[in-house]
Design a protein around this nucleic acid. Sequence first.
DNA 1: AAAAATGCGTGGTAATTACCACGAAAATTA
DNA 2: TAATTTTCGTGGTAATTACCACGCATTTTT
Lengths: 218, 218
Amino acid sequence: MKNYLSILSKVKLFNNIEESEILSLMTCLEARINNYEKGEFIFTVGDKVDTVGIILRGSAHIIRENIEGDRTIISTLGVGDYFAEAICCAGVEESPVSVQVSSDSTILLLNFSHILHTCHNSCMFHTKLIENMLYVIANKNIALQNRMEIISQKSLRLKVINYLQTLAMKQGNNITIPFNREEFADFLCVDRSSLSHELSRMKEDGLIDYHKSNFRLL
Amino acid sequence: MKNYLSILSKVKLFNNIEESEILSLMTCLEARINNYEKGEFIFTVGDKVDTVGIILRGSAHIIRENIEGDRTIISTLGVGDYFAEAICCAGVEESPVSVQVSSDSTILLLNFSHILHTCHNSCMFHTKLIENMLYVIANKNIALQNRMEIISQKSLRLKVINYLQTLAMKQGNNITIPFNREEFADFLCVDRSSLSHELSRMKEDGLIDYHKSNFRLL
DNA sequence: AAAAATGCGTGGTAATTACCACGAAAATTA
DNA sequence: TAATTTTCGTGGTAATTACCACGCATTTTT
């Protein structure tokens, strides 16, 4: 466990919690460290999930599957990322997603439902941890709502403008998007070449200017 | 305050908290009750928000506005609904939305950031309240992700199928959607008549059968 | 019961987008 | 530095969707 402290201390979930305190928290959280080989599933759709997972080594995909069994990757996780925190805190009975490691990985599993629903010796760390969790999930919430707002626009052009405008509020007129084209298209839920088409049309129409990932609203 | 206890006791945020306890909580939360006339804003984009609002009487809209000042209604709230809880818990400095009452309203405002960041006499209620908040936001999170998954499908047909399939998992083969056509279209972020068109095409193609809000996957 | 409002399907058309294929430029690797 | 891979724009076409207009059926109001 100690080997991974440097990772854990950077995780927002443990914000304002000393490294020594993190170690003692691990007991309350019934921490387990599991190794998985590339392709293994940590849990699958329908499982009851009551642990939060943190990636200590390797990487993983969050995956959805429909009735016919088609799988789509919802997101990709790396070292320091965590998963299942919302599932866990929402107390959902059946996970709507699976998590599969995409390379040999080491995963820290923390029994969060325990700390929420039973263990009430409430040391200072517990309180802090729950508050951190609230902070993390609330922020995810805001991010999800912002993205939803953008995706729900009815045309590609509006999606792009909407997104650039929200960035412009923070970055000013010279905007750098944190995506390459393909990632940008994925974020907007559109086809990459459709996005490229639309971007050049928007440039032609004098709405925007751009070069690679740098944009300017005109 | 007492007049509204019957409303508050049904609010998920106060789950497992006795009515008498709710009253004493109000002190910690620096509860204020404000009246607004139809059309008034409770707060606007850019405001620093550190209170959670609960509607005791009337109704409100959550509104976004872009740089040009165009406004769109994101959601509609009624008695017992609350707002700004994620903004508050996420500690965002500038609210991305405005809240405007759509009829004469009475709003309960609770200083949640205070209970999170300063007030640490941590009575049992505090802990319970924070846990409830975590539960509420986590569930909202899951709902947002589920909806995102559906909206991000690249064709209307896939959106419909995806949505019906998730409902089918819970309701079995005879599905009742909680929307009329217009609401359904809004939920999927598509045009109402486009949805109607696609639905009849899907019926024609033998994919689904439906009548009003009752659907069946074939 | 009549009148008004709402909900919903449908036709038709223009606009938008997905999809495929390709090549040039840039970045990465050997 | 050459070879390979990745990134991205573009043309073209088919499919999808938005948009407008209208009418019928149902519900609500008066």
